[in-house]
């Protein structure tokens, strides 16, 4: 299989996330970490704020990863990464400094830090592993939880829409912004490699369906991830120097009529079980709105 010039045969076989780690069955973060290893391998220094990945690492003195990991407080990740990258520049050492942060550490508690590093153009890649709620603390809502979704702090469904962080990062005029999905590994790997080749601040937003928090069968992680793209709920794109290009896997769904019904996406997840038809129509119009806004930048 060859996507975007990368052959799966060329990817390193070395495992950067070891078997037997403490992720939940069907964990999208575990998928994402494997792809990160395949894409960038030994060049990575990972900066990890509090979140599920803190647990996936395993309990010291055991360790489930082959990346160096700087574990850091919640709101500090991008600033720590800036420090690491600056030190490596001073020392003349090669390193791809990657922040691996959830939706909380990206869009909420860590947002000022993210924005600061982006505005300064610090030489790091921020990956937002978006499982659309605070999963590690027990499925509480975040600003990236979609409209209508149940969480343990929104029992009747979230009343607010999902914050559009990729577009906010685009408005920081950073050299690279992309979205990705754990259902499209080659697309993600290609974007990671492109990001690593660019100096300055890079942002990749990785959609990460979470069986535990979204209430679906752990065997369906990739299927749910793909449905998100096929229904237009999640749009894969890439923006180099501000120019947005819809990625090939999402391109057909620019045409609304080619998208699968959003109902297909939400009905296989328990978190939307209380969604009324009226709320579904509101959710659909929000999705159209996200597309309309994004297309203006293409």
């Amino acid at each position: 299989m060859i996507v975007g010039g990368i052959s799966i045969r060329e990817l390193p076989r070395k495992k950067y996330l070891l078997p037997g780690n403490s992720s939940c069955p069907g964990c999208p973060e575990a998928l994402g970490l494997r792809y990160l290893g395949m894409a960038l391998g030994d060049r990575v220094i990972l900066v990890v704020p509090a979140g599920c990945s803190t647990v996936i690492e395993g309990l010291a003195p055991n360790y489930s990863m082959r990346f160096p990991i700087v574990n850091v407080p919640f709101a500090s990740a991008d600033a720590v990464a800036s420090g690491v990258a600056t030190a490596k520049e001073v020392l003349g050492e090669d390193a791809v400094v990657v922040v691996w942060a959830g939706d909380g550490a990206t869009a909420d508690i860590g947002f000022a830090t993210l924005s600061g590093a982006a505005e300064r153009g610090d030489n790091i890649i921020h990956i937002c592993v978006d499982n659309e709620a605070y999963m590690n603390t027990g499925i509480q809502r975040s600003s990236l939880t979609p409209y209508g979704a149940w969480t343990t702090t929104t029992w009747t469904g979230k009343k607010e829409r999902k914050k559009d962080v990729p577009l906010i990062m685009l408005m920081h005029k950073v050299p690279y912004v992309a979205t990705a999905s754990v259902g499209y590994p080659m697309d993600f790997i290609e974007k990671l490699r492109r990001a690593a080749s660019i100096k300055g601040f890079k942002y990749i937003h990785l959609h990460a369906p979470c069986p535990t928090g979204w209430r679906f069968d752990p065997s369906l992680t990739v299927e749910v991830a793909k449905l998100a793209v096929e229904t237009g709920m999640w749009i894969l794109f890439e923006a180099i120097n501000g120019k947005v290009k819809i990625s090939p896997s999402s391109l057909p769904y620019r045409d609304r009529s080619r998208r699968k019904p959003i109902r297909d996406y939400i009905k296989i997840q328990g978190r939307f079980r209380a969604l009324t038809d009226k709320e579904l129509r509101k959710l659909e119009s929000m999705v159209d709105d996200v597309w309309d806004t994004l297309i203006k930048f293409t």
């Binding site: 030994d42 060049r43 990575v44 220094i45 803190t54 647990v55 690492e57 395993g58 309990l59 010291a60 360790y63 990863m65 082959r66 990346f67 160096p68 990991i69 700087v70 574990n71 850091v72 490596k88 050492e93 090669d94 390193a95 791809v96």
Partner: peptide, 11 residues
Amino acid sequence: KSGDPITMGNL
């Protein structure tokens, strides 16, 4: 440093 898989601060 890159390539040296140490960690600090895990549980």
